[in-house]
């Protein structure tokens, strides 16, 4: 009897589940298995090596540096992006003339592919002839090196990633904000609550689920950041933008060491799960 009721939903879910299993689960499993093997070019065969790859990765100063770079990047960029996109969401909710135009403008970065966006920003940030420097020169500020300076490269990448991401995350906040029943606002207004108070005591608590979703998704996509390192900086200067994904790519495809790269990916996965777990614990809680 219960089977009949479950049949239809199960049937509809099957294609999607199949997709997830084949394209996500199997490669992940394969990667984990690969990480326990090594390949010898001399003998042309693969052999079991236990945790050797993990030890090699964790004793490699370059990989350790990439962990550091990734962590620093994420500690800065995640709160930054969530805050800015939340603020942007609020701004884009205000009923003023031209709001549709403003909303459209902020959606443009989403439509550009990240690769193209990076190339364009690379041109804008060119130390000798870039537009950004020309603008700075107008204010008497000398040419900045941006992506070619050890101290400026990571902040520049943070800037590009934020520019690309905030419009997208703001969309989620807008939809979350629109869900808040207007009666709550009316009640608050009647009780004499000012805009700041309303924000803290009504808006934010109602947005808890949306905030959690954005924080987790943003964290995941930022931990997997790869394109700017690949297109613009090659991990430099001096490894200051050498993200873990970039090291993984290098080990897999430049150094032809897929097994070591697999162990690095597993480590990245573990760190990411830990971070997301902490975020969920802090922001989860029961719906009020």
């Amino acid at each position: 009897m219960r089977w009949k009721r479950m049949a239809a939903p199960l049937l509809f879910l099957t294609p999607a589940m199949l997709g997830i299993i084949v394209f996500k689960m199997v490669p992940i499993l394969q990667g984990v298995i690969d990480s326990f093997f090594q390949y010898s070019f001399i003998n042309q065969k693969t052999y079991f090596s236990g945790f050797q790859n993990y030890i090699d990765a964790l004793t490699d100063p370059i990989f350790l540096n990439s962990i550091k770079v990734t962590m620093i990047f994420n500690i800065i960029v995640n709160p930054l992006q969530v805050l800015i996109s939340f603020g942007l969401g609020l701004l884009l909710m205000i009923r003023i003339k031209g709001q549709t135009t403003f909303r459209t403008i902020h959606l443009i970065p989403i439509t550009v592919s990240f690769t193209v966006a990076c190339i364009l920003w690379g041109v804008l940030m060119n130390p000798e002839q870039g537009l950004l420097n020309s603008v700075l020169n107008l204010f008497g500020i000398p040419n900045q090196q941006f992506l070619f300076d050890k101290a400026q490269a990571l902040p520049s990448v943070i800037g590009i990633a934020t520019w690309k991401g905030v419009g997208y995350w703001a969309l989620f906040f807008i939809s979350g904000l629109e869900e808040i029943p207007s009666q709550l606002y009316e009640a608050a207004a009647i009780d004499g609550s000012g805009p700041w108070n309303t924000l803290i005591h009504i808006t934010i608590p109602q947005m808890k689920r949306t905030v959690l979703f954005v924080v987790v998704s943003d964290t995941i996509s930022n931990f997997l950041l790869f394109v700017p390192a690949y297109i613009l900086t090659n991990g430099g200067p001096e490894g200051s933008t050498d993200f873990m994904m970039f090291e993984i790519f290098k080990n897999a495809y430049t150094y032809s060491n897929v097994n070591l790269a697999s162990s690095m990916i597993v480590l990245l996965l573990v760190i990411m799960l830990a971070v997301v777990g902490i975020e969920s614990m802090l922001l989860g809680g029961r719906d009020e």
Binding site: K150, N234, G235, G236, P237
Partner: peptide
């Protein structure tokens, strides 16, 4: 290549 690039940029 990475090293030459870093040297060009001031390392």
């Amino acid at each position: 290549e990475k090293t030459y690039s870093d040297i060009m940029n001031g390392s």
